[in-house]
């Protein structure tokens, strides 16, 4: 226990452990973002996280909870609006993403008593990871991984062909809702690492890199996790050695691996 305690006392190790925990769930969910072409959707949810922070301060809620709740609410609004088809989905996403971000910033400006490091929320504040944050990350990861494991076949089937899945008796609507909830949760926990503006990168880049190396969906998930963990370790080391900002360094490390893999492996495996 003493050893664990002393490790957790060190901010660098806390950052690393937290980052690895986020990579653990960003891998599989990032694969779904890539498979289902939801990159812009993920970005929109991430932008709304700042609104969540503002609401959290306003109503004095735990911030992680406020972020996850706002993401879920926005996700549901998006699904309903997209169904009515008054606007193209990408237009709708663009409107909601930036409006949520702007409303969040305006709301925060009305609360002068809240002293807030905005750039920490926008680009991540990995090195300020607390023990509570670690609890959040690993608690969230446990929920997400359990859900993924139990719903795996249905999630995969609805991703391949929604109507085929429906005919075969999978609860398509409920699976979609579960996926939204998982996205919201991962955004709430990943925000600390890379911030609102870079979360999508942490989801997509490892998954896209893994695609070149994988020949089954499961292997792609596993590889995305490994690549995400390497990116976190590499980025943190870079940040430690050259005093660069931690969140962007993680994304730079992920992007470097992406370039390497796509440079070396010319064709996808399957």
């Amino acid at each position: 226990m003493a050893l664990i305690d002393s490790i957790l006392d060190d901010f660098f190790w806390r950052a690393l452990i937290g980052g690895l925990g986020v990579a653990l769930v960003a891998g599989p969910l990032g694969c779904f973002v890539v498979w289902r072409r939801m990159a812009y959707f993920g970005d929109t949810l991430a932008h709304s996280a700042l609104l969540g922070i503002a609401l959290g301060f306003l109503f004095q809620l735990p911030l992680n909870l406020a972020i996850a709740g706002t993401c879920v609410a926005l996700a549901i609004v998006l699904v309903i609006l997209a169904r009515s088809r008054t606007l193209a989905t990408d237009t709708l996403l663009g409107i909601l993403a930036h409006s949520a971000l702007a409303i969040g910033l305006v709301t925060l400006s009305f609360m002068p008593e809240v002293r807030l490091d905005l750039s920490g929320y926008l680009f991540g504040d990995l090195l300020a990871m607390s023990r509570d944050d670690l609890l959040w990350i690993y608690g969230g990861a446990a929920i997400i991984l359990t859900l993924l494991y139990r719903l795996w076949r249905g999630l995969l089937m609805t991703t391949i062909h929604e109507e085929l899945a429906r005919v075969e008796g999978f609860p398509v609507e409920r699976l979609r809702l579960a996926l939204m909830l998982m996205f919201s949760l991962v955004i709430a926990v990943a925000m600390k690492i890379v911030g609102v503006l870079l979360i999508t990168a942490l989801l997509i880049i490892p998954a896209a890199t893994a695609r070149r190396l994988a020949n089954t969906p499961e292997r792609m998930v596993l590889l995305a996790v490994v690549i995400g963990m390497l990116a976190v370790s590499g980025g943190l080391s870079l940040s430690w050695l050259s005093d660069s900002p931690a969140g962007p360094s993680v994304v730079v490390a992920a992007f470097t691996m992406f370039l390497l893999v796509y440079g070396v492996v010319r064709r996808p495996q399957a």
Partner: peptide, 27 residues
């Protein structure tokens, strides 16, 4: 039991999938 063959299966090339896996997703 209904077997459905949809009009055209547009698969995302980002999802690595073998015929074996696709068939075995039926359970």
């Amino acid at each position: 039991r209904i077997g459905y063959v949809p009009q055209h299966l547009i698969l995302q090339p980002t999802l690595p999938l073998s015929v074996r896996r696709f068939l075995m997703l039926t359970g």
